[in-house]
Amino acid sequence: PDDLEKRARELLKRGKNPDEIREYLRNAGYDQSQAEEALKRAL
C-alpha cells in the first residue's frame, strides 16, 4: 500500500470516520481523487 493508504488506515484505526479522513488528506495536500482511492482501499 502507498503512504496515502497507510495514512488512511492509521486514521481509521484511531476512530476517524471517512469524511474526517477525506478532509485530513485534502488538507495534507493530496488531491480529491487520490484521497478517495486511498480511502476506498483502506476501508
Rank of each mutant, 00 (worst) to 15 (best):
G29R: 01
Y30A: 12
A35K: 00
A42E: 02
E20L: 04
R41F: 03
A42I: 15
L43C: 09
A42T: 04
Q34R: 11
L4A: 14
K6W: 11
E20R: 02
P18D: 04
Y30S: 03
R26H: 09
A42C: 06
E23K: 05
K6S: 11
E37W: 03
I21V: 13
D3A: 11
L43A: 06
L43F: 07
G29C: 03
R22V: 15
D19E: 11
Q34V: 13
E10A: 07
L4W: 06
L4D: 02
R9F: 05
L12W: 02
K40H: 13
R9Q: 08
L43V: 07
A35D: 01
N17I: 06
N27A: 14
G15D: 02
L11W: 07
L25E: 00
K13P: 01
E20Y: 09
P18G: 06
L4E: 02
E37L: 05
L11Y: 05
P18F: 10
Q34I: 11
Y30K: 02
E37V: 08
P18S: 07
L43R: 05
A8W: 05
S33R: 12
R41G: 06
K13F: 06
D3W: 14
L4M: 09
Y30G: 03
N17V: 07
D19N: 10
A42L: 14
E37T: 08
L4P: 10
L4V: 09
Y30E: 02
L4Q: 03
E23H: 05
K16M: 15
Y30H: 06
R14Q: 15
A35Y: 12
A35T: 12
R7E: 09
A28M: 15
R9S: 08
Q34W: 08
E37F: 02
K16H: 14
R26I: 15
A42G: 03
E36N: 07
L39E: 00
R41V: 06
A42P: 01
P1K: 11
G15Q: 02
N17T: 15
L11S: 02
E10D: 13
E10Y: 03
P1M: 15
P1R: 11
E5Y: 15
R26V: 14
A35I: 15
D2R: 09
L11T: 00
D2L: 11
L4I: 12
E5F: 15
A8K: 00
K40T: 11
Q32D: 14
E37M: 05
D31A: 08
E36I: 05
P1C: 13
A42M: 13
E37N: 08
I21D: 00
E37D: 10
